[in-house]
Design a protein around this nucleic acid. Structure first.
Lengths: 193, 193
DNA sequence: GCAGTAAGGAACCAATTGGTCTAATAAACA
DNA sequence: TGTTTATTAGACCAATTGGTTCCTTACTGC
């Protein structure tokens, strides 16, 4: 009995996520965000409430789309731990950013230098917004904590009993997560491939 | 034959550095910056020109104060590579943020929770400003590249010929730098200690 | 004392920020 | 057809952004 929403909420959030991914939270302003989401200011505030809410939903979508598959691999009891960890790092190396690549292609000319990635939204956001907003910080820290635990689960399934300190001890999962985050930050800077 | 500058340029930049360290570049606004530097708007623009210029100088000061000592250790030919690398990570763990601790103490009550650090200005800035300003990105990437090279120098001086993939191969220095950056990002988030 | 410079403070600037509101239109369903 | 709701575009908002200008007040060395 009423006009249905013309845009898809999830699609709009996905477009927002891709912009936040590239720009970071602070550097994303409303006009650009509305442009990327392809909705009007009115629809934006009616459907989502605020920029911060959209960012939190984008973070949640990022988790579902990019983080959880990795966590599933790390926690997959049928896969040896070393193999799971290697697979997660390999996925990060391969870009793991379809949507980003797409939006990048739209921005650059004819796909030249289109190989550059924006790293990891979660990792970048951790560095940027840690001290600014408690809600955002909580959401990010929860995701990072999940990731660390998943690395721990994979480490616990290791088949080889090697002596690498990186893969043993109480802080081994933390250290693996550090490597992952650092990789993705330097990847964003273009210094790691 | 003229009135001398009443504030010390380097001290002002140091205060700015500490604020940028805590807040990041985008989230630092002029009034807060002037307040932290304890100079007036007029003096600010006469002496430095712009917020961006101040940030670049703060980055340079950070490099001199916090990055170069680490690089010197890593490149110290008299110290075994493993030892140098361990020392750099240990320094990062210890906080390595005197100025920041001081400004933190001023913000919080009576020093409670004063142990929290802001991670590493360079690492956080790498994540935040990579795609926004070319000058800033260049300055950051140059510093990161120096750091990676220094890790490489330390690796080349290794005494033990262990089989850890982390410490061998062409990308070993890059991997060490990743660990370092990731450590400091998670440190800022409070998830690594 | 005087020239020269820097200080602080405040007024002022245009542009942008995230966010609100209105009015007209459009689509669905009963 | 009428009710309901979502749509768009745009005006509008106060607050904030980084930055400029100006005036008065120091302070220095000659």
């Amino acid at each position: 009995m009423a006009r249905p929403r013309a845009f898809d909420i999830d699609e709009a959030i996905e477009k927002a996520m891709n912009l936040f991914w590239r720009m970071g939270y602070n550097a994303t302003n409303l006009p650009e965000l509305l442009d990327a989401m392809e909705i009007s200011r009115g629809s934006f505030y009616k459907a989502f409430g605020s920029k911060k809410d959209v960012f939190l939903r984008a973070l949640a979508l990022y988790e579902r789309t990019y983080v959880e598959p990795g966590i599933a691999v790390l926690e997959n009891a049928d896969m040896p731990g070393e193999q799971a960890i290697a697979a997660v790092f390999e996925a990060a190396k391969q870009g793991q950013s379809d949507g980003v690549q797409a939006s990048l292609g739209a921005n650059l000319g004819a796909g030249q230098e289109a190989k550059r990635t924006y790293g990891c939204l979660l990792c970048s956001a951790a560095a940027e917004t840690a001290y600014h907003d408690a809600d955002i910080a909580d959401a990010i820290n929860a995701q990072l904590a999940r990731l660390i635990r998943a690395f721990g689960a994979a480490l616990a399934r290791q088949t080889q009993d090697d002596a690498e300190p990186t893969t043993h001890g109480p802080r081994a999962a933390e250290r693996l997560a550090q490597s992952y985050v650092g990789f993705r930050i330097l990847q964003r800077s273009g210094l790691s491939a």
